[in-house]
Design a binder for these strands. Structure first.
Lengths: 80, 80
DNA sequence: GAGATTCATTGTGTTAACGCAACAATTTAT
DNA sequence: ATAAATTGTTGCGTTAACACAATGAATCTC
C-alpha cells in the first residue's frame, strides 16, 4: 500500500466561503488538521473524509482520489 | 468526532466470490485486516477504503457509510 | 478421515492520524 | 497604520490502523 491520495479540500472550502477554522468545527476536528490535509502533509481518516464529503454534499471521490485532479481552468473550459 | 462507520465489505466480497485472502492481496493488505474491517473491529484508512471501492467499481459511500445499510432482503424487495 | 482452506482470536510492535499549544508570517478589515 | 483574522510551522503526546506471527475451530475437498 501507501498510494498518494490527492484532494480538493481547499477548493471546495474556498468555494463555500469557509475558513479552515469554520470547516474544522463543522466536521469536528482541529483547525490545523484541515491545514495539514490541504497541504497533503497527511491523509484524513475515512471517517473525516466521509464527514467532509457529506458537508459539501458530494461523493468522497469528488474530493479525494488516487488520480490528480484537473485544474479548475481545465475542468471549466468544457468543449463538447 | 468518532462516529460509527458501517460497511458492506463482506457482502461485496462474497458476491464477487472472493476469500479474505484474495481481497487482501488485491488491495495490498494483510488478510486479517479484512477480517477486522468486516467485523467492525476498526475502520479502514481512506486509502484502503478508496482501494476497496475502486476494486468493486463503486463509490466509497456504497460500501462505507455513517448510516446503517438496509438488509439485502429489504433492498432487493423493491416495490414502486 | 486426513489434509487444505477459510475464518476467528490474541498478542506484540510500528507508524501515522490526529489533539493541543505556542508563535511567526501573511492577509484582511477598520 | 493598527488591529484582527487567517494561515504556516514546530513540537510533543495519544491512539488506532495497520503488519506479522501463532494457534485453534470450522468447513470443504479428496
Amino acid at each position: 500500500m501507501s498510494r498518494v491520495v490527492h484532494n480538493r479540500i481547499a477548493i471546495f472550502r474556498a468555494d463555500a466561503g469557509l475558513s479552515r477554522r469554520e470547516l474544522a468545527e463543522v466536521v469536528g476536528v482541529n483547525p490545523q488538521t484541515i491545514g495539514f490535509l490541504e497541504r497533503g502533509d497527511y491523509k484524513p481518516s475515512l471517517e473525516l473524509a466521509l464527514a467532509i464529503a457529506e458537508h459539501f454534499g458530494v461523493a468522497v471521490e469528488q474530493i479525494f482520489s488516487f488520480e490528480a485532479f484537473p485544474s479548475l481552468s481545465q475542468q471549466l473550459n468544457m468543449r463538447s
